[in-house]
């Protein structure tokens, strides 16, 4: 069902990318497109759809199983149920997204979305191929166990994904303050995609930015420091396979040289950049070094 909603929105995605490119070309809108970068983003989106089929059956079966053992029966026709799932799904997304950035095993699949050094609507379509295998979909199981029908969960997930498409743009500046306070906006999400130490691991929100404000991960975009996009160690070419699997390959190489269970655990579930001797830098270390230079 999730695929259905997103599939329905796909023509809109294509049209919006066309509009953004033409606006940049003829109206000097703020947007940069590099053809090979765009190709990688779009092929990763296409591949993600195909890869999702591999695990779709397992995800659907697990969701149905959880729903069959539900605590309550929540009617899809009740307005309050939609209000409840809106907030609960958005909170679940925040937790997923934070996990996907702060623990390497899940970062290995999510890093794909961040590998572009551009921030445009095509970047929104740069989606993971390995998310299903990484198992983050399990985070949504409690909603089914609570009693939300699987169709309702899938619909809200689709709405969230579609919402997050339009915020991947530099063409929109800052919105009126009440909107910026409540919602995830292009400005907030630019921060999320930035690799400046100041901005690393911030603004995990899906639709509502309130979760970041509540849990201390909010960082506003500043005029003082423009976001520089991409990852801390950017890709050195436009190889699609490398773009998809590089972090998994890096984990494999690290595990091959691990000397203890602690090393294995650290390489798999430590923060990205973790190393036994501290010779590499995690986001926290980069932020600390940046903060020290400002004192």
């Amino acid at each position: 069902m999730k695929t259905d909603l997103v599939t329905l929105a796909t023509p809109f995605f294509v049209l919006a990318v066309i509009v953004e490119i033409l606006a940049a070309r003829f109206l000097a809108a703020r947007a940069r497109y590099e053809a090979r970068d765009t190709a990688i983003s779009l092929f990763m989106g296409l591949g993600s759809t195909a890869a999702g089929l591999l695990t779709a059956g397992v995800v659907a079966a697990a969701t149905l199983f959880a729903y069959q053992h539900r605590l309550f029966t929540i009617p899809m026709t009740a307005w309050w149920a939609w209000v409840a799932i809106f907030f609960l799904e958005d909170l679940t997304y925040y937790l997923f997204h934070r996990l996907a950035h702060e623990r390497r095993f899940w970062w290995a699949s999510h890093v794909n979305h961040h590998t572009s050094q551009h921030y445009n609507l095509s970047t929104a379509l740069r989606q993971t191929w390995t998310g299903g295998l990484a198992g983050t979909w399990l985070l949504w199981m409690p909603l089914a166990f609570l009693g939300f029908p699987p169709l309702m969960i899938a619909t809200q997930k689709g709405i969230s994904l579609i919402y997050q498409f339009w915020i991947h743009t530099e063409a929109i500046g800052r919105l009126p303050a009440p909107i910026e306070w409540l919602f995830n906006t292009p400005s907030h999400h630019r921060v999320h995609h930035a690799r400046n130490p100041r901005y690393l691991d911030r603004n995990y929100a899906g639709i509502l930015i309130i979760w970041d404000r509540m849990f201390g991960t909010f960082e506003p975009e500043t005029d003082e420091e423009r976001p520089r996009y991409g990852i801390v160690r950017n890709l050195g070419d436009f190889n699609l396979v490398r773009a998809v699997f590089h972090e998994w390959a890096a984990i494999g190489a690290d595990l091959a040289r691990a000397r203890s269970l602690r090393d294995v655990a650290g390489y798999l579930f430590g923060p990205p950049g973790w190393s036994p001797d501290g010779s590499r830098e995690t986001s926290a270390m980069l932020k600390a070094r940046w903060a020290a230079t400002r004192r």
């Binding site: 294509v14 947007a31 765009t38 296409l46 759809t49």
Partner: peptide
């Protein structure tokens, strides 16, 4: 749908190259 998407991808990449907005 996949075939149509593939055509759309190629068209968008072509448009991005034509626009010269890197």
């Amino acid at each position: 749908v996949f075939a149509a998407s593939l055509i759309a991808v190629l068209a968008l990449v072509g448009l991005a190259a034509w626009a010269r907005i890197a």
